[in-house]
């Protein structure tokens, strides 16, 4: 456990005490802001009755942040250490593979959540200038952030896996972007597929990230969505662990 905290502190420091970290935060803030602008412009033309948070996820930018942000945040984790050789010094100390994976994933996810904080600012603006009291309703905001956290965990763990598989950061970013887009396309397929009883459709429909996020944005926590994201995350982290172990396979 001590090793985990040491590693976590170091990973967090390398996110928050680096230029790269703030570039990522700035870029995410920009995307959140853009998404807000688009939302406000849309509302101006076409008034709506749903809570503002619900509209938020449906803008294009939300998914762009997820698809672009996760690869960029995670690309450094393993690939950089491998390229610079510090992976060798790390793995020759008595640390377990699990501790390394857990610390890196936790750090990346924490950083990801911090970079979502500007969204709070947008919600505050809405609250201040409109009659939308629901914008800062604790349940709704909690739901939104829970959704962001769970979906983020899926994409971040995917990014961790890609980083562990690659030798360079660029490679890692490309792999996790491609895998992320594939997952996104699957979600899109699930959303647009006609509803019927075929098992294929049923299987694909579990990947319907849009409806899952929609529920979260309304403040409704669906246990199916929670189980789906957690199990997907653990699956990717498990693969990540195996990739680290594969180094010791003969």
């Amino acid at each position: 456990m001590r090793v985990f905290w040491t590693l976590l502190r170091r990973e967090l420091a390398s996110f928050f005490l680096s230029f790269q970290g703030y570039v990522i935060i700035a870029a995410m803030t920009l995307l959140v802001g853009l998404s807000f602008v688009v939302l406000v412009a849309g509302v101006g033309n076409d008034p709506f009755t749903e809570p503002v948070t619900e509209m938020f996820y449906s803008t294009f930018y939300f998914w762009l942040i997820l698809l672009l942000g996760a690869p960029v945040i995670t690309m450094r984790l393993f690939a950089h250490e491998k390229a610079s050789g510090t992976f060798e010094t790390l793995m020759t100390t008595p640390v377990g593979d699990l501790q390394v994976v857990a610390a890196k994933f936790t750090a990346a996810l924490s950083f990801y959540m911090v970079s979502w904080l500007p969204l709070m600012g947008c919600l505050l603006v809405v609250r201040h200038f409109t009659s939308q009291t629901a914008a800062l309703d604790p349940g709704t905001v909690g739901g939104v952030y829970l959704g962001i956290l769970l979906l983020g965990a899926v994409f971040i763990s995917l990014g961790c896996l890609a980083s562990a598989m690659s030798q360079t950061q660029v490679m890692s970013a490309i792999i996790s972007f491609v895998l992320g887009v594939s997952l996104f396309s699957l979600a899109y397929l699930a959303k647009s597929a006609p509803v019927n009883d075929h098992w294929q459709t049923q299987a694909i429909s579990t990947f319907n990230l849009f409806d899952q996020m929609h529920d979260f944005a309304r403040g409704a926590v669906d246990s199916r969505a929670v189980v789906f994201s957690l199990s997907t995350t653990f699956f990717f982290l498990f693969l990540n662990l195996r990739v680290l172990e594969s180094r010791r396979w003969k």
Partner: peptide, 11 residues
């Protein structure tokens, strides 16, 4: 163990 090229965290 000090590997070849002595990798360190430069930051």
């Amino acid at each position: 163990y000090m590997p070849e090229n002595n990798p360190l965290h430069p930051e």
